[in-house]
């Protein structure tokens, strides 16, 4: 089983690795059968790196992302993200972990339809306990960075697909996360918008020193990453 790890020479393991996965397995029950989607996955990702995760549909890419982001509980193996053992983290602390450590960008922008672009961007900070003025200030700054300050007061229904995804990127960055998990972030966008969104994600990653793990089918998008991994039959291998 390959181990995907890299890091600066001389750094300790804790300093180097933002993701440390060992022997991770996960299965779904479907129509009375057990479907094993992840089997003995090993993965180490150092802080600040950019990793692309590819693989065919149904190979478990999104499941791995959900497990790394604390959206689901792993069934077997070791899973440590940003120093937190996610298999043993209680629910309340898991929610706090997601809020403070992870920035999610989903394939579907997943904005709250009743909130404006600014409110959507500020929402993650408010959930994180940041004061309203501070959350709004951060959201405005991020909307300015993604070029949407003039549309801050617009509801998602009045934004284009690319604009909505840029708001989602701003929301993902508002708590200055250590790890950005992006699940097909350009899957619903045309080439020009896809390019712009990925440029923004990379720019913000650099600015905040975050680690980026992108799940994608898009080989051109995967080629932008320093490391590309492939999930095949539940196992992780170098692409």
């Amino acid at each position: 089983m390959p181990s995907m790890a890299s890091g600066p020479a001389g750094a300790t393991t804790e300093e180097r690795e933002v993701i440390s996965v060992s022997g991770l397995s996960h299965a779904y029950a479907s129509s009375g059968r057990t479907l094993l989607v992840l089997s003995e996955v090993q993965l180490q990702v150092r802080a600040g790196s950019y990793v692309a995760l590819t693989g065919d549909s149904g190979e478990g890419k999104s499941t791995l992302l959900a497990l790394l982001g604390g959206l689901q509980r792993a069934q077997g193996g070791e899973l440590v993200v940003a120093g937190q053992d996610l298999r043993r983290l209680p629910s309340q602390q898991m929610a706090r972990f997601r809020s403070r450590t992870i920035g999610f960008v989903f394939q579907h922008h997943c904005l709250v339809e009743s909130l404006t672009a600014l409110e959507n961007a500020a929402l993650a900070a408010l959930i994180n306990g940041v004061s309203r003025p501070e959350a709004v200030a951060r959201a405005r700054a991020l909307l300015a960075q993604v070029g949407l300050l003039e549309r801050a007061g617009h509801l998602p229904g009045r934004l284009s697909g690319g604009e909505r995804q840029r708001v989602a990127v701003a929301r993902a960055m508002v708590n200055r996360p250590a790890l950005i998990l992006a699940d097909e972030p350009t899957g619903n966008l045309d080439e020009r918008n896809a390019q712009r969104v990925m440029d923004l994600i990379e720019q913000l990653r650099h600015e905040y020193g975050a680690t980026l793990l992108v799940v994608t089918h898009d080989s051109s998008l995967a080629s932008r990453a320093a490391t590309t991994l492939r999930l095949k039959e539940g196992r992780l291998e170098a692409a």
């Binding site: 629910s91 929610a95 997601r98 999610f104 997943c110 929402l123």
Partner: peptide, 16 residues
């Protein structure tokens, strides 16, 4: 459903 999932994904607790 999706909005609730997103809220929880970005850190909202059950009580929120």
């Amino acid at each position: 459903r999706r909005e609730i999932g997103v809220l929880k994904a970005i850190g909202a607790r059950d009580r929120d």
